[in-house]
Design a protein around this nucleic acid. Sequence first.
DNA 1: GCGTCCAGGTCTACC
DNA 2: GGTAGACCTGGACGC
Length: 326
Amino acid sequence: VHTQSAPPVTPLTHETAFRLDPIPPYDFALTVRKPGGWDLFTPDERFDGETLWTALHLDGRLVGLRLSATGTADDPGIEVVAFTATEPTPVAADRIRTRLAEKLGATEDLTGFYALAREDPILQHAVADLNGMHSTEMSHLFAAGTLAICLQLTTLDRSLAMMDALVERYGERASFDGEEVGVWPTADGLAGVSPEELARECNLGYRARYIDALADRVRAGAPTLGELRDLPPAEVRGELLSLPGIGEYSADIIAPHTGFPIDVWSVDVFGTLFDGEEPPNRRTAVERIKREGEARWGEWAWLAFVYVVHDLEALSAALGVELRLT
DNA sequence: GCGTCCAGGTCTACC
DNA sequence: GGTAGACCTGGACGC
């Protein structure tokens, strides 16, 4: 059976340098390399403690990035060098800068969240531990969707293996600044790949059919993450739930900053925080805990989720409970 | 050694 | 509009 050969390597030789000025407080390392181990744009990116080399498709264009912080959390700056195959027009360069600022959480004002958090018996610890951490946004809708689908109904180890395989087998490779970074596959990049091949090459199981259908749908036209960001939350939800393989949980993961993605794992953590003990029945507790979190934290529920899951160890010590990641 | 259960859900087919 | 049952895969468990 024929399978796709290794992904092409694309040299990105044109450099565009600029500086972003995030809304303080902004901690670059905490934001791009979260304590819980989430990747920013791809599992293949490299962070040396100060500088992050990563790559993604922005508005369909492959962009390599060298990102590093200047200043402090209270007076922050991000030095960016964007590497592209050809010289971007001034308009395109401006769009890269704008979209990147959004994705890095540099335009996110934490003031309201911190005001709420300082009065909250749980969050007050997390915001003290993680001052200046911002939420970030994935490369594009198809990347967020495939990530969510890979997380469904399996162990975290296998989820990570599926995502690694998708990037390795079907993601374009960006060559720039002496680095080579495999990026998250695009819907176009999966054109002509059968669901059977996807399942076999990436050990996706039944999820291959979802990802194949999602790719079809995105190629046929679906809103971008940037467009979703400008819609009311109820409409965002409707758009996402109409996508193949995307249900309540996945929509909460994808939705830009509006969801509270409780699942059978995180329900233990938040059940313990709200009730003092893990729920006796995880599956039936998911809906209840989700509503409780949304009622408690409202429009800030997503940030509350991010702060809690990246501060489990310190929160456990501060609150005298055991919050686990297994 | 083998069967069974279930893991960071969603869809379909039935009431 | 609500609720079983199926779904790839494989490690953990009970016998």
